[in-house]
């Protein structure tokens, strides 16, 4: 069964049409990249699937159940949402922010159990934040903040992870790290819908891509078919200069982590 099945999703904001009849399916183990130029409606689509924005039309099934019939708590346990340039409003420590990911399991009264703490610890460890656990959030660098918020989303242990430009603030090495974590989430049986601007990362990490343009699906499918001369021309108005190879060579990921850079994350 599809974890997410959206069909005919439309949305207008203030009389302005944002999305027209978007459909998509996400299966367990699958990572779908949402690409397209600025203003194509990528973030809006993500917010609709997260339940933050109600679509004007269309149906949306989460694990076979209509999203609007899910209870708040059940929805919060299945879907984690990683906002674009998210922030924290009080100077709370890193560990406490990550712990917020367990709130859907606590209700109004219970405090974190040993199991919750183990999961929080694991999320900190996977994102390389153990050494920063006690640091107040405002004292972190942009990249560290992005990883803390990802760790918060991972601590939900969601089936569905929605990430809006999760690598926007990160350096090359941390971009790979975050994409690896999202990939790992999918390999463990979850699914991820990720808004990406870097088509090289999208082509390398995603199983399928959905190309949005002016609120419509321009193309969808495996990266090799979506990243075409025609699509790039229509969506972005760009033409790729080739150095003899195929088009996908221009979007090959030509770097990888060595794992031994000086001052590796979380070592200080």
């Amino acid at each position: 069964m599809n974890l997410v099945e959206a069909s005919g999703i439309s949305l207008s904001l203030g009389g302005q049409p944002i999305l027209h009849g978007i459909s998509l399916q996400l299966q367990a183990g699958e990572m779908l990249g949402l690409i397209g130029p600025n203003g194509a409606g990528k973030s809006s689509l993500l917010k609709i699937i997260a339940g933050i924005v109600k679509p004007a039309a269309g149906s949306l099934l989460i694990d076979g159940c209509p999203l609007n019939r899910l209870k708040d708590q059940a929805r919060a346990r299945s879907i984690a949402y990683l906002a674009q340039s998210g922030t924290a409003h009080w100077p709370i420590s890193v560990a406490r922010i990550v712990a917020l990911g367990r709130l859907p399991y606590l209700g109004s009264w219970r405090s974190a159990s040993l199991e919750d703490r183990r999961i929080i610890e694991q999320a900190l460890q996977r994102t390389g934040l153990l050494a920063l656990a006690e640091r107040p959030f405002p004292t972190l660098s942009g990249g560290e903040k992005a990883r803390v918020l990802l760790a918060r989303a991972l601590a939900v242990e969601p089936k569905i992870l929605l990430a809006d430009e999760p690598v926007a603030a990160l350096d090359l090495s941390h971009q790979l790290e975050v994409m690896d974590l999202l990939r790992q989430h999918c390999n463990d049986g979850g699914t991820a819908l990720v808004v990406l601007h870097d088509l090289r990362l999208a082509a390398h990490y995603c199983d399928r891509l959905l190309l949005l343009y002016q609120g419509r699906t321009l193309d969808s499918g495996i990266p090799e078919s979506v990243i075409s001369d025609n699509n790039l021309q229509r969506a972005y108005g760009i033409r790729i200069r080739r150095k003899g190879g195929s088009l996908m060579d221009a979007f090959a990921l030509t770097w990888s982590k060595t794992g031994d850079q000086a001052g590796s994350c979380g070592s200080d």
Partner: peptide
């Protein structure tokens, strides 16, 4: 019983919504 909800709001209204 509003404490957890106020904690969630630390991350902003949209993220708090997705935390239930």
């Amino acid at each position: 019983g509003t404490g957890h909800s106020l904690d969630a709001l630390t991350l902003g209204e949209e993220t708090a919504h997705t935390l239930g």
